[in-house]
Every structure is written in C-alpha cells, then in structure tokens.
Design a protein around this nucleic acid. Structure first.
Length: 230
DNA sequence: TCATTAAATTTCT
DNA sequence: AGAAATTTAATGA
C-alpha cells in the first residue's frame, strides 16, 4: 500500500481507531478518483454496492419528495463515509448522494467492508458511533422540521453547518461550503424566496452576515437566540 | 407565518 | 451574452 493511500485512510473518520499497522492491512480499497461537481454517486434505482470514503470534497445526501423537490438529509465533508451494504446503511436506499464540488474519493466493495468489520472490531465500534450520531442528528432535524418556524430551522442548520464546516473569521464563523439559498431551502424544507427573506432578517438581527458567495454566523448568538423564546 | 407566482435585478461563467 | 442566483412584491391559505 502506498504511503499516500495510508495517509488518506488515516484521515477517514471510520478508521480513526486503527493504528498504522492495522491501516496498512486494510484491503480492497478501490482507486482514488476525482469526480466533478454534480456527480450522482448513489441513486435509489441502483443502491450503493459500496462504502464510499470521501477524502476531500463535499457530498450531499438527499431524497426527492413526490413533487420531485429535494430534501437534504446531510452534508458530508472531508473524512466522511457514506453508502450502504446489506447490513449497514450510511445514507440508505431511496437516497441520492451527489458531489457539491469536485471531490476525491474511493469505494470499498461490500465483501471487503464486511471482512474489515470482522477483522477489526474497533471499526465496528466506530461505525456504531457514527451511525448513532447520524440518528441523533436526524431526530433533531425531524423535531425541528415538525415544530419550528423557518427562522429557527434556518438558525439550527446554520449553527450545525458552523460546527461541521465553520472557520473563524471576523468575529463570526464562516461556513466554508458554497451554498445557494436554494440549497439551504432544501435543508430546512422551505423555499428559496423564504430563505432569502429569512436570511435578510437574521442579517438585520446581526446573527448572520451574508455576502460575496459566503455565509457567516454568530454561532454563540444564534444558540442564545434558539434557547430563549418558545 | 409562509408557499406560490411573477417579475426585476444582481452575480456568476 | 446567457445562465444562475438573489431580491422584492402581491396574494391567499
């Protein structure tokens, strides 16, 4: 195994508990490939036969509703894994996985994943952790979508994005993913226009700064705003 | 409060 | 220039 591939594997969160020797033993990792923005890697018609390891890039997991409009379930960044096998689902069937920008990733076929899990229980443990976190996030999302207005839904997802993709800058946390208002709408189950208006309002409130293709949020302020006020 | 429709305007490629 | 994205406004549920 090349040193480069080893380094790459060490940055995949699923393998965080493996030491160098264990990493070197990982077998069946396909070649790294660069895929352009907008590539659909997984679609409902042909469920993933593989576990995808995302070295660098951004991947959106989403479903389509009956009217064909997307609902984004998760955004994945560097080091994340997604895909499915018979017993494991990280982003399941009926779900699309699409790159939001040029991404570097590779695939592991199902038998290799299952063998890896048998040989390295730590990986299974880590997988449970990842799945648990994803369940928690989705539960929170369900509750938010069911009970809260767009302003609060948007605040929550921005705080969440700041946690995952935020970089400090100018007193605020800049979200290092280029997201259109339409992208955001598909995350909070709203519309482009309402997101535009709501972002403008949050801007007036001093909680977000928008401009030049970027989004920044006052994360502490936003958390405070989410806590008080029913 | 917010989706929808329509239209104007700005920003990207 | 042309496409994509953003913004504003009116209307109704």
């Amino acid at each position: 195994m090349s040193p480069e591939l080893l380094w790459y594997l060490s940055r995949i969160n699923l393998f965080a508990d493996l030491d160098a020797e264990a990493l070197a033993q990982i077998d069946g990792v396909g070649p790294m490939t660069t895929v352009p923005r907008g590539t659909v890697l997984v679609r409902p018609a042909e469920p993933a036969a593989a576990l995808y390891l995302l070295k660098r890039g951004r991947v959106r997991l989403y479903r389509l509703d009956a009217q064909g409009r997307p609902l984004t379930m998760a955004l994945l960044g560097d080091g994340n894994v997604f895909g499915a096998s018979e017993h494991i689902s990280l982003g399941c069937d009926d779900m699309y996985a699409e790159t939001m920008e040029e991404s570097l990733l590779c695939a592991m076929q199902r038998p290799d994943v299952e063998r890896l899990l048998r040989e390295h229980p730590e990986v299974g443990m880590r997988l449970i952790t990842l799945l648990s976190n994803r369940v928690r996030e989705l539960e929170a999302l369900v509750a938010s979508l069911a009970h809260e207005d767009v302003r609060r839904r948007l605040l929550r997802t921005l705080v969440h994005l700041a946690d995952d993709f935020g970089v400090a800058g100018g007193g605020m946390t800049r979200i290092s993913v280029p997201l259109t208002h339409e992208d955001l709408a598909s995350m909070v189950a709203s519309t482009r226009e309402t997101v535009t208006a709501t972002l403008a309002r949050l801007g007036r409130e001093g909680l977000v700064r928008t401009g030049r293709r970027t989004l920044a949020i006052d994360a502490p302020g936003a958390r405070r705003a989410l806590e008080d006020g029913a």
